[in-house]
Amino acid sequence: MNIFRLCGDMSHLAAIIILLLKMWKTRSVAGISGKSQILFATVFTARYLDLFTSFISIYNTCMKVFFIGTVYFTIYLIYMKFKATYDSNHDSFRVEFLIVPVGGLAFLVNHEFAPLEIIWTFSIYLESVAILPQLFMISKTGEAETITSHYLFALGSYRALYLCNWIYRYYAEGFFDLIAVVAGVVQTILYCDFFYLYITKVMKGKKISLPA
């Protein structure tokens, strides 16, 4: 464990807590993409299959349980409890255009042609594009609530911090995973225009409103 990865995990944790707080306090899921949450649930389920078979540390197990539990709770809030506030018209990204290519790529490009490894690779590739329905929804509605902007900033920062973690681990431990790094770079790049909007607008107390 290193400071970059710890900050990354804390940023990821903060993003999930911000999202849950937004939903619970406002009792609304307006502006939140249910499809992205479903993709995240798929990512966590596929990645944490070894939750019960390989024990890394208490921290690792607790975080995995928390991530899986909260993402399914988020889906419950969106599609059941606060269903009336779910904006399905604007959450119209065709996720099959993500899942099929990502699934195919996981078969072709992986570290080892073994079921668990291919599923893990699928979860890494899927995570890099899982935020697209959410960003697409914001571009369609033309604006994002400030709390949603904080959620996205924390979520985008988590993988950017992981990139720093991989740089550190490469020099400190000789650890290197090309698949995770490339997917992490793609994932972070997808947030760049949002980061720009966040830093130039939200930090100055304005709302994010994309030119509709």
Binding site: M63, F176, L178, I179
Partner: peptide, 10 residues
């Protein structure tokens, strides 16, 4: 391409 390792990251 990658050092064989235990998947210890989230």
């Amino acid at each position: 391409l990658s050092v064989a390792y235990k998947k210890d990251e989230l």
